[in-house]
Design a protein around this nucleic acid. Structure first.
Lengths: 227, 227
DNA sequence: AATTAATTCAAACGTTTGATTGAATCCATG
DNA sequence: CATGGATTCAATCAAACGTTTGAATTAATT
């Protein structure tokens, strides 16, 4: 039994890097194993299939992140009712912290966000399995932090918050305009702060019922979403 | 020259539907043309390659949307300085309006969001070409609407706003938790309103400098983004 | 009716894909 | 040093891929 561990982790490391760049579909098992310097059959021997490689890459890192999220949430809740900013920090910080890991951390975070937006069924279910518990906890916490909002409204706003996070992780610099998005020079802490502020303000914004039915405050009537 | 126009648009319609569900990589040209009921070679005859099919699907619909965005922006700007909500409505409403088009409009919007998040190079450049002008106009308008923010901060917040939009279009109902995200019963207008309120509040939130360097207001020290 | 160009079609192209095989190699253990 | 399970390897598999071909078909023009 030669360099078993090395081969297995070599495959995972390489997969993390390549999948995050080109997506799972964009990387063949051949090019992946070639880049890792191992035989194609080694991937099947250790993982069984390409799908299982992808799921292994995902599971290897996401669990510590989600454990840390729960830990932070517990810590905040033990010392009183957490503020919105604290909840968002508990949700975002472990992800951005891993993203800063010089050991391919940024690769994994892009991969993680890509899993969330790729259409493959097995990626969806893998994601759901890993996240349902964490999101359930946070959904409950956000409901308590926003007692004036209906439950569905809270879910919708969490959805928006995740959109900000996923989009920021997925497009760290690449955007349609070079002016948009975080600059390469921005620190992750600065980006986290900006995200938390942005999302916290959005989450505690006035709820729909305060405006005339369906209308947005102070809007002139040029735009019509038909019907 | 038989049903030329029919064939071409049949391919585009089918591609729009299938690409939006499974992504471009997830749909073979064979299954696509089979679903459309046309010969495989017809796709190459009319478009030249699979990539060109994808770009044609994209271009066919995105241009009217972006023209409408510019039109709305012009209209708001002609009658005074637009509010944040008006700018966001001009940005979001044409997209959500198309999304409501019973003629496969929702398919296209998912496709559009998928283009934005798929790793393929030709999709990125196609997206950039179609959007750079629109985003340039809106970036300028947002800067005027948020004069107290630094230019980079405005770009960052637009980036967040696009994240909310893309994520909402891409995951109309599917989320990790069924409780999250817009319900199937939610009208697009209600979703638009919720998005506009959320993002507007985020955009006009206090800027970083108002807090102690790098810190988020009222945050207890459980979370550390290392370093 | 003949000519011509546009379009469709079945068939095949060569390549790449994920997966599998069986022999070779390694290394801990007896 | 021999045994045997663990691991690697080159070679190969069938299937699917995007693309191309050249003949057949269609419809407008002469």
């Amino acid at each position: 039994m030669p360099n078993a561990k090395e081969t297995k982790e070599l495959i995972l490391d390489t997969a993390e890097r390549l999948f995050s760049e080109k997506g799972v579909d964009g990387v063949s098992l051949r090019s992946l194993t070639a880049a890792a310097g191992v035989n194609i059959a080694a991937a099947h021997y250790h993982f069984g299939s390409k799908e299982e490689v992808a799921k292994a890459v995902f599971a290897r890192r996401i669990r510590p992140v989600n454990r840390e999220r729960i830990r932070l949430l517990d810590a905040y809740q033990e010392s009183g009712r957490p503020s919105l900013e604290e909840l968002l920090t508990a949700l975002f910080a472990p992800a951005l912290r891993l993203a800063r890991d010089p050991q391919r951390g940024d690769d994994f975070m892009r991969l993680c966000a890509r899993f969330y937006s790729e259409p493959a069924e097995y990626l969806e279910s893998a994601f759901r399995e890993e996240f349902s518990q964490v999101l359930s906890r946070f959904h409950e916490a956000f409901r308590r932090a926003l007692p004036e909002l209906a439950e569905e409204e809270v879910g919708l706003r969490i959805h928006f918050a995740i959109g900000v996070l996923v989009h920021t992780l997925l497009n760290p610099t690449r955007t349609c305009l070079p002016k948009l998005g975080p600059k390469a020079s921005d620190s992750d802490k600065a980006t986290l702060d900006a995200m938390v502020r942005f999302v916290a303000a959005g989450m505690r914004s006035a709820r729909a019922a305060q405006f005339p039915a369906g209308a947005v405050a102070g809007l002139r009537a040029h735009a019509e979403v038909a019907q």
